[in-house]
Amino acid sequence: MQTKAYRIGTRGSPLALAQAAETRARLMLAHGLPEEAFEIVVLSTQGDRITNRPLSEIGGKGLFTAEIESQLLSGDLDFAVHSSKDMATRLPEGLEIMAYLPREDFRDAFVSHLAPSLAQMPIGAMVGTASLRRQALVRKLRPDLQVKIFRGLVDTRLRKLADGDADATLLAYAGLKRLGKPEVATEILDPAIFPPAPAQGAICLEARTDNSAVRALLAPINDSDTFAAVSCERAFLEVLDGSCRTPIAGYARIEADRLQFSGMILTPDGQTHHSIAGDGYRSNAVDIGHRAGEAVRDAAGPGFFEGWS
């Protein structure tokens, strides 16, 4: 029987803390435990500390998880709460994603005081975003627009936008909703036109593979639909060696026992792109994602990836 509080690792941003609090609340309800049964441990990651350079230049997604995963492996944390799209496709040996909370909206939000939609932005306007996927999609849809690196927490980016550092930005709609700010969105982008990042909108819970007590703790709050959908999307990424250096989009939808997947890869300038679709039984989610990744990679040909690093 657990005698000490479960230690939950998280980053310290308002969004990360909201996600940790949601996880704690779900566990309290599932197990009839008091709030004191859980301790939220805030850790600063390198990705949080370096905000003036693109992630693609400083190491990619692992910068948001390395410090947390080190403490999971040492036993200083029992489990960690992450935004799933920040997770590398290959986790450190001995760690695994044990559960996903029910997924929020996976679409992107366009935010601007200049125009009501991305399509209506004036020629030459500046869009700020740190995501290579979003940059490439903006350039694909509106090659007449300018794009600049725009990093920081949600409130930081909104403040930069208000200060005139850019004319528009793009944010995950799920993050705005979890922060209680859905009204900030000027337009919710159609995923068929502006597909999201794989795993966007999903919260995952990571722990040591050998920690059976935590596995039993997390099992009741795992959402099976989200687990299947995100497992498919991460499998697609894995085949393409997806990281913050690569413009890749993809999302899966679950209906009963079936899964439908849509994916896209782009060159950074957005002018060359390849789309793929796959479907099958949800029990084959990982295989569907892998097949989609292999098919789009073969269709693109080796020359397509020469600019990726």
Rank of each mutant, 00 (worst) to 15 (best):
E255Q: 13
L237T: 04
Y100P: 02
P54C: 11
R245D: 15
E39F: 07
S83C: 12
H82G: 04
L205P: 00
L29I: 04
G263I: 04
Q135L: 10
T10H: 02
M121G: 07
F227C: 00
L55W: 07
P195Q: 06
D78A: 13
A88S: 14
I221T: 05
G250W: 03
G293N: 04
L137F: 05
L205N: 01
L141I: 10
E183G: 10
R7S: 09
A125H: 08
T51W: 09
R253N: 11
R291M: 14
A66H: 14
L77T: 01
Q2S: 10
M126G: 06
A174S: 15
D76M: 13
T65L: 02
I149C: 15
A219D: 06
D223F: 01
A197V: 12
S275N: 09
R234D: 07
M1H: 14
K148N: 13
A235R: 01
T23K: 02
L77I: 05
S212Q: 11
G60S: 08
F305C: 09
D210W: 07
S84G: 09
V81P: 01
I248T: 05
Q200I: 03
D287V: 12
A285F: 12
H274G: 05
P191I: 06
D155H: 09
R26Q: 02
T226W: 01
H290P: 05
A300S: 12
A228M: 08
A172F: 03
C232Q: 14
E233G: 03
T186I: 03
P220T: 04
I68T: 02
A185W: 06
M264S: 10
K4Y: 11
F150E: 09
Q271Y: 04
L171F: 07
S74H: 11
D298G: 15
F110K: 03
S309N: 10
F110T: 08
L101H: 00
A5C: 04
A300N: 13
T186N: 07
S13T: 15
E36W: 05
I68W: 03
A115F: 06
A115K: 03
P191M: 05
A130N: 08
Q271K: 05
D298H: 10
A228C: 10
E255I: 08
Q2T: 14
F305I: 06
Q71P: 03
P54K: 08
G128Y: 03
R142Y: 05
G301M: 12
D167N: 13
G180V: 00
E69V: 07
T272G: 09
Y6N: 01
Q260T: 12
I193R: 11
V138N: 02
P54Q: 12
P182F: 03
A199I: 02
L43A: 00
R11G: 15
F236Y: 13
R215A: 13
E96S: 13
R107M: 09
L158I: 03
Y281A: 15
A299E: 11
A228D: 04
D163K: 10
L179N: 09
V214C: 00
C204R: 00
R53M: 11
S275C: 11
A66N: 14
A295Q: 11
